[in-house]
Write a protein that binds this DNA or RNA. Structure first.
Length: 548
DNA sequence: TCTAACACCTA
DNA sequence: TTAGGTGTTAG
């Protein structure tokens, strides 16, 4: 499975955490309602007590310090380091859905110049928002806590028409992965009240998407740490890796390396002259100034000058809890049958559901994808702006039901005003999560089809954006705290965010709540709270990106 | 910038 | 054995 032994989970994830709660009432989108949010019900407690620790955090930090780059390809590329977490604090018997979305960290396009990342203009329009739902979802807390939860199969693509359900990104843009934990129990079956979820953001997992590595340091880190790149490891020559090229038995210095060396040399000299390297570049600094007027960046003296992704603080996690109540509207996530006609045999390990675009109404008749997909699979859920339905109840087994693994697909909202707001002052940008498969359409596309059949048009669902996918860095409401979420009581909650949830039950369509608003538009200056300190209110991840 | 083919490697 | 994940390279 995707879960691995949690043996190495020694990472004491020093992270920034924040918890919050969102009510279904969209009228207060994003308004932090800290105190009132603390309900004594079990749901709240569970969510607020959940702690998430990033696995191999040190490795992530090494990449982060160098400016993490993630390759994106048409066929989809895995992330490395892989996103793996150790989860604790869940109610063993409660079922949760774990999913990841990757949102723009800002609204800039970047270029790697003079051995450092610089802003190269305004970001391209956001790609269709997609979510990667852990294949084991939904599963009980006992299941999730048993071992590491790995999202290593998540793939990134630059193909806007990607039919496989991979997360679509724009090259040369900065992104921030976010982990969402959604409670999916019978009592809060989609659309019902008391639906809660938490969002965890580890700033060290932010990265810039590229089609080919720009920074040689990153290339080396990948080669040194990714088992699949072992073939590129040199002996001990450090930088001089051996390129094993066809017909070449001799070590050669790659073009990239040569370029890097030149750049490094140049930069080093220039850096000394300017008293800074890489991040010390003025342009870089400017990027992290947000509309809110909150200087998120580069203001942290502790941040390594060479780090393109300054963390700005020790804590690495932004945590947010939401609670959804009394939804009036829900969306359904329906798992549909795989595209048998287009990818008949290709259905192997993973399947994705396309969003319910208007074409493929016939799939509605197959609300449940479970049996159709033979095993746990990542599914793509399309969201729909429409109605919602009753909610189904999930089973209670410890193990997740077969084939509920899905990728949720959300539509993209226009960039919210990119900025960060302090929780206190600014309401969340509503981002409805219309992860629904309602109807129409969720269809499955073989994830393994190698033929890249003609991509289906990506469903563009207006109004949707679950989890704020594809929005500029979501100011995830957060407060800092130690490794993870907030422990006791610390939870700033925001009402009005509706978490899209999907519920699957054999024979019943997955459902999702919509009107999920979660992004505050400002980031709290408080984001720099010391680790372990729990903070109420919203903290923008953006602050982590502040440039040094 | 991006893509496809490639050798090498893991699982 | 084989499917699939790597970075590299040429174009």
């Amino acid at each position: 499975m995707l879960q691995e032994k949690a043996s190495a989970v020694a990472d004491e994830g020093v992270t920034v955490a924040q918890s919050g709660e969102l009510a279904n009432d969209s009228s207060h989108l994003g308004l932090p309602v800290a105190p009132s949010i603390h309900h004594n019900n079990e749901v709240d407690q569970n969510i607020e007590n959940i702690k998430v620790v990033l696995h191999e955090r040190e490795l992530w930090k090494r990449f982060h310090e160098a400016g993490t780059e993630m390759i994106i390809t048409k066929a989809g590329r895995r992330m490395f380091p892989s996103y793996k977490v150790k989860v604790t604090g869940m109610n063993p018997k409660t079922k949760y859905i774990l999913l990841i979305d990757i949102v723009p960290a800002d609204d800039h396009r970047y270029k790697f110049c003079d051995n450092k990342w610089m802003v190269a203009g305004k970001a391209e329009p956001a790609m269709p928002g997609r979510l990667y739902v852990h294949p084991d979802s939904p599963a009980t807390g006992a299941h999730w806590m048993r071992q590491l939860v790995s999202f290593q199969k998540l793939k990134l693509t630059n193909n806007h028409l990607d039919p496989f359900g991979h997360i679509i990104l724009n090259s040369m843009h900065k992104y921030q992965p976010r982990l969402h934990i959604v409670k999916a129990d019978e009592n809060n079956a989609f659309g019902s009240k008391n639906t809660a979820y938490c969002t965890h953001v580890f700033h060290e997992t932010s990265f810039i998407s590229v089609t080919s590595y720009q920074n040689h340091k990153i290339t080396q880190l990948k080669i040194e740490n990714n088992p699949f790149a072992k073939g590129f490891r040199g002996s001990d020559e450090g930088d001089l890796r051996v390129s094993r090229l066809p017909g070449k038995d001799y070590p050669v210095i790659s073009k990239n390396m040569a370029r890097q060396r030149l750049l490094t040399s140049h930069t080093h000299l220039a850096g000394k002259l300017s008293a800074g390297v890489l991040s010390g570049h003025p342009q870089v600094h400017s990027h992290y100034q947000y509309d809110s007027g909150v200087a998120l960046s580069g203001t942290d003296p502790q941040e390594p000058l060479s780090n393109p992704f300054p963390s700005g603080r020790e804590s690495s996690l932004l945590y947010h809890c939401f609670k959804h109540r009394d939804n009036n509207r829900h969306l359904e996530l329906g798992c549909k049958r795989p595209y048998l006609d287009t990818a008949p045999s290709a259905v192997s390990e993973e399947h994705y559901f396309r969003s319910p675009s208007s074409y493929e109404p016939s799939l509605l008749s197959h609300p449940y994808c479970g049996e159709a997909l033979g095993s746990r699979e990542a599914c793509m859920y399309g969201s729909m702006d429409g109605e919602a339905g009753a909610v189904g109840v999930s089973n209670t087994e410890d193990m997740p039901p077969p084939s509920l693994n899905c990728n949720m697909w959300a539509s993209v909202q226009p960039y919210p005003r990119y900025g960060i707001q302090t929780v206190e002052a600014v309401p969340y940008q509503p981002f409805s999560a219309h992860l629904t498969s309602t109807a129409t359409t969720a269809s499955i596309v073989s994830h393994h089809s190698t033929s890249m059949q003609r991509p289906q048009p990506a469903p563009q669902v207006p109004d949707l954006v679950s989890f704020g996918t594809q929005q500029a860095m979501p100011p995830v409401p957060s407060s800092s705290s130690s490794s993870s979420s907030s422990p006791s009581g610390a939870s700033s909650c925001d009402r009005s965010a509706h978490l899209p949830l999907y519920h699957r039950k054999p024979g019943s369509p997955l459902r999702v709540h919509r009107d999920f608003s979660a992004y505050p538009t400002q980031s709290p200056a408080s984001s720099r709270e010391p680790v372990y300190q729990y903070q109420m209110g919203l903290s923008s991840i953006g602050s982590h990106w502040s440039d040094s």
